[in-house]
Design a protein around this nucleic acid. Structure first.
Lengths: 157, 157
DNA sequence: GCTAGAAATGCAATTTTGTTTCGTCTGGAA
DNA sequence: TTCCAGACGAAACAAAATTGCATTTCTAGC
């Protein structure tokens, strides 16, 4: 899980494909990277076992399932005591509407990406997550007008 | 692609599974949601055609492929002329290191999520994307110390 | 430069999964 | 009531993933 994976050019080529479409048949991948299907399959398996590939998922259009609003929130906390920070992390991570949560340096402590159906839902969420949390000093809201680019693809060279 | 999909409880249950693991066999999904494999398959196909499912991808651990640093950037532009904004969108979207890009309301105009190997790389990227861009007034950097929760999963009820 | 050991490969067989077919059932409109 | 459209499940089928095995490639170590 945390061993050095040591990826070669084959692995990277495979990753580039899987990050675009992981339903690509191994045979087709093999043709592109010049490897047999079993070889591709073994490499994929190894990358899954070593944690290079964290998950295989379907990406869903939020608007199509009733969550048309995406919001960024910068959260500043009162105290940065480790215990309180950990509690905040767990608290944020638990919430399904919180798609992403990062603990960051800079003028904020946390940045959240939230997806909701309505602004009223967001308002209710802020009450629950921020106003009722004594350790939240203040937060700033940015509503997405356009999701210009959305993905978790990582360049693999 | 943009027709109202009208998802029922079966569709949503299927989506919940596929958002966690889209390698789950259709037969296994069928057992969970009480549907036959062909029924599951037809629903998945329909959701792919209507754009509810935008893509099927592998999620890669950035650190394991040499991109251990995740950075948020708030970008403020000089002019919000539609033409310039569109140019900015295209410019940001093009860059592989820019994982996500949102056009937002609030104290910033764009929020970017960037993944890089080193801070030197980030510095080079800022030069290219911001300093050499006349329409960028200023930008603020937040370096992620902990990727507490990362995903694109959307609650489906 | 040569050789042993380890790792990775390709091929072919097997198993699992995805896909299509087809007959049936259900719900709604005429 | 009758007809039609849509969705379903069972079974047959096609395609893909997976496994076993012999061979090749790579890497040291001598």
């Amino acid at each position: 899980m945390s061993v050095s994976p040591d990826l070669d050019a084959f692995d990277r080529a495979i990753l580039a494909i899987l990050q675009k479409d992981n339903a690509t048949p191994q045979r087709a991948i093999g043709e592109v990277v010049n490897l047999s299907a079993p070889a591709v399959q073994r490499r994929i398996k190894r990358m899954e076992e070593t944690g290079v590939i964290r998950a295989n998922v379907a990406l869903v259009d939020p608007a199509k399932v009733g969550h048309p609003i995406t919001i960024f929130v910068e959260v500043e906390v009162e105290s940065e005591r480790a215990e309180l920070i950990d509690a905040a992390k767990r608290g944020f991570a638990q919430v399904p509407e919180v798609q992403q949560c990062y603990y960051v340096t800079g003028e904020a402590d946390f940045i959240l990406v939230v997806t909701v159906a309505t602004m009223a839902d967001y308002e209710a969420l802020t009450r629950r997550l921020f106003f009722e949390n004594n350790n939240v000093k203040r937060f700033r809201t940015f509503v997405a007008m356009d999701r210009v680019k959305v993905g978790l693809e990582v360049p693999v060279e």
